[in-house]
Structure formats: structure tokens, C-alpha cells
């Protein structure tokens, strides 16, 4: 059997006395999309930031299955290794594209940055790869020299996705990737994400408060309430047959609206 790509165990993050999230254990398997859902303030972002190495945890373990076969706790990696992982094997898609893009450099440079970070030094090749990735996120090649400030919200989000995928990562973290977009453009971005995730066999941990997004993208769901996991299971099962009263309430409230 293969092993999980990410393994979280007894994770807790406190903000002083306040509990951001606690008693969190779950695995993510290669190629699997896991959605973390729950109401505002339930600790979704706290959890995501902890497991993606962007926020210190208070206790617990987070282990990652490295390409070289090691399965270390992130805390045991050197800062250099952790940062290398973040810009090669991992991706992070922010809700606000401006948080994940360099707004003052061209789309091509945004996509090419990770390639240059790992040592690519051939301008023509970097540009070709950038063009190819812009195409994969449905941005016309003739926009390659435009800056993201000239892009619509949906284009910016697609650019952010391309910028993350160019190094062929294995694990992507997303925090409400369509949350800031108009409803009309959300569908296109979701469609695109779904296609890329399955084409590339990506493992994804996606935070969303939108159960429709979870239904469309994820195979498995984690339901959080006040910092704790209250229910977890296959997405279809959780949405069609929620066990926990809180999940039932969440699902019901969506159905009503």
C-alpha cells in the first residue's frame, strides 16, 4: 500500500488561552482532495496555515511524505528545506490573488518565478513554459507581458493557480479560492481547478465554507466547529447523510437557500 502524503496528528493551535483548533488528526492521500468546511471562525484557516507550515502549531505532529521517501515532521526540516518544499512540491492558493501574486511584475514573470527560484536560467525556455501554463489556465498568450493589475479577478485567480502549478507540485493548499469572486466567474475557476487537479493527480486540502465547492471538488470532507473536527467522511456521504447535528444544520441551511 502507498502511504499518506500528509499526516496530521493531535494538532493544536492556541492564540493565548483561546483555542484556534485542537484535537485535529487526519491523513491526506496522494491525489486526494480533502475539503475543510465549517462556519466562520471555526478554525479552518488556522488549521490550513498550520499544516502548510505558514503558522506555528502549539502541539501535535504534521508529517509530510517527501519525494526522497523520508516522512519527517515539518518541524524537523531545516528552514531551507521547508521553504524549498513550499516553492516546489507544494502550492498555496490564497483567497485574495494579490496575496499570492507579484502585482507589479508581468504574468510571465509571475509564472516563471518558481522556475527561476529552482535555477532555470534560460529566458526562452522559462517563457515557453509560462506561455504553456497560461494556456492551461485559459489566459491568452498575448497577455504574458501584462501585469496582474490589468487582469480581472477571475484571471488573477487563474494566474495564481498557474504560478503554483508550474513546478508540478504534489500537494496544494487552498483557502477559499473562489470566495472573493463574482458568482458568475466562480464556476469557471472551479471547473478549471477540477480539471487540473485530476489531470495532474494533485493532492489538495481546500478550505471553504461553500458546500457546493466541497461537493464539486473534494472526495472527502472534514467538518469543523469551534476549532474541532465534528465529522469526517466521504463528501457525498457527509452531504447526503450527515451524522452530526451541526453538519445536518449546515447542510439544511444550504438546501434552504
Amino acid at each position: 500500500m502507498t502511504s499518506p502524503i500528509l499526516s496530521v496528528s493531535n494538532l493544536e493551535r492556541r492564540y493565548g488561552d483561546f483555542i484556534g483548533c485542537t484535537d485535529i488528526s487526519f491523513d491526506v492521500w496522494p491525489g486526494e482532495v480533502v475539503a475543510i468546511v465549517g462556519e466562520s471562525g471555526s478554525g479552518k484557516t488556522t488549521l490550513l496555515n498550520c499544516i502548510s507550515g505558514r503558522l506555528d502549531r502549539s502541539s501535535g505532529s504534521i508529517r509530510y511524505n517527501m519525494r526522497d521517501g523520508r516522512f519527517p515532521d515539518l518541524a524537523d526540516l531545516s528552514e531551507a528545506e521547508r521553504r524549498f518544499l513550499m516553492r516546489t512540491d507544494w502550492g498555496f492558493v490564497h483567497q485574495n490573488p494579490a496575496d499570492g501574486l507579484r502585482m507589479r511584475v508581468s504574468a510571465g514573470a509571475n509564472v516563471g518565478e518558481r522556475l527561476m527560484a529552482i535555477g532555470d536560467r534560460h529566458y526562452g525556455e522559462i517563457r515557453n513554459t509560462a506561455t504553456e501554463w497560461l494556456g492551461r489556465v485559459e489566459i491568452a498568450g498575448d497577455r504574458i507581458d501584462d501585469k496582474p493589475v490589468a487582469f480581472s479577478g477571475g484571471m488573477r485567480q487563474r494566474l495564481q493557480i498557474a504560478r503554483n502549478l508550474v513546478t508540478r507540485p504534489r500537494l496544494i493548499f487552498m483557502d477559499e479560492p473562489t470566495g472573493g469572486l463574482d458568482v458568475s466567474v466562480q464556476a469557471r475557476v472551479l471547473d478549471l481547478l477540477r480539471g487540473l487537479v485530476s489531470d495532474l493527480g494533485l493532492a489538495v486540502v481546500i478550505v471553504t465554507h461553500d458546500l457546493a465547492v466541497a461537493r464539486l471538488l473534494s472526495q472527502r470532507m472534514i467538518v469543523m466547529k469551534t476549532g474541532r473536527i465534528v465529522e469526517t467522511g466521504l463528501t457525498d456521504r457527509v452531504l447526503d447523510d450527515p451524522h452530526h447535528p451541526y453538519t445536518q444544520l449546515l447542510v439544511a441551511s444550504i438546501l434552504e437557500s
Binding site: R83, V105, A117
Partner: peptide, 22 residues
């Protein structure tokens, strides 16, 4: 400071890339 410490110099080439692109 971290970038110098860890020899993460990709950004310099982002600037040079941008020069050529423009």
C-alpha cells in the same frame, strides 16, 4: 535577510526576466 541566508536568489532573475520581456 532570510533570502540571503538561504541563498534564495530567484527574485533577481525575475527582475532580469522582466527587463527582457519589456
Amino acid at each position: 535577510r532570510v533570502m540571503h541566508g538561504l541563498e534564495e536568489y530567484g527574485l533577481i532573475h525575475v527582475k532580469l526576466y522582466e527587463d527582457i520581456a519589456q
